[in-house]
Amino acid sequence: MEAAQAQWVKIHPLIVRITHWINAFGILIMVASGWRIYNASPLFPFRIPNELTLGGWLAGALQWHFAAMWLLVINGIVYVTYGVVSGHFRRKLLPITPRAVFHDVQEALRGRLAHEDLSVYNAAQRAAYLAIIVCAVVLVFSGLAIWKPVQLQEITAIFGGYESARVVHFLTMALLVLIVVVHVVMVILVPRTFPTMITGRARRAS
């Protein structure tokens, strides 16, 4: 049968694949070193186990944090510029409606979400990937607010001051980590999506 003939289609452009993995690496360093920094003066009545953190001590963690920051700055500029200029964001992440997101999340929870065409993101994916972008923006600005509460005090003021910017930075990190965990779980549940983020191609029945 002709329909059974498999066809390779390109679904992830090279630039998206490269920035995705650099981003994954950078976020891992940011989160792990950030947890160590958090431990030096915990905002909440808990500490992160040191085994899960990066840097060995406060100064080491700060070095990792402020080094990975630049990696993510460059990577973020490349990704966002590409996403906007090429229309990648518009094509892949839009349109998105709350109703569609609600529907697809329910389907996903029932294990019934279809993943036939990997080149098209379902509404739950779109919502998750958009949320990651929003989290990243909030993390960048709340981070700047904590790092430079004098030079960039206008940004700090947006978050209601230094202390509340710390809370926003931490909670946004927590939300981002949650989304990433769900993202990784989904990849494990639909394993054929994994190689596509490396090769960029997926098999599609035509």
Binding site: A24, A32, N50, L52, L54, G56, W57, G60
Partner: peptide
């Protein structure tokens, strides 16, 4: 030893795989 410990912590995160 401290440095090794510090690296091990990095490794436990899978940083090596990515590096």
């Amino acid at each position: 030893i401290e440095r090794r410990l510090f690296l091990k912590q990095g490794l436990s995160l899978g940083a090596l795989a990515l590096l």
